[in-house]
Amino acid sequence: MKFGILVNEGPYTHEASDTAYQFVRAALAKGHQIYRVFFYHDGVNNGTRLTVPPQDDRNIVKRWSELAAEHKLDLVVCIAAAQRRGLMDAAEAKRNGKDAHNLAPGFRISGLGQLIEAGIQADRLVVFGD
């Protein structure tokens, strides 16, 4: 079965991102497909490569990146939500005249249409948030 995943909260503050990650991993382990993981609201903060959690804690961002690399996941960060919150890739940084970019490997920035499309294409859409 094909799953679409929506993550509405950032890493660390809420458990939502952890639950979404564990759900995605379990779905993949059972042979299901993850059509897309879409990050919205503060969920876009799951895509910043500048997080440096303590060594004895999980690295939520890195964990998403690694899972994406391993399973060719499509991790999409909402552009409107990302711009509000200071998350951008190199192209966006240039376009907006910013001196830095911070999108983590395996993530891409795109529009809200990607969420709707995931709802259309996936057999199930599961929302994780606060």
């Binding site: 919205y40 609201h41 409107a80 939500a81 529009g111 809200l112 249409g113 969420l115 709707i116 499309e117 259309i120």
Partner: peptide
């Protein structure tokens, strides 16, 4: 932000 999704989604 929910309303923003509704507006974008309407095009689909």
């Amino acid at each position: 932000e929910s309303l923003e999704v509704v507006l974008i989604g309407a095009a689909f």
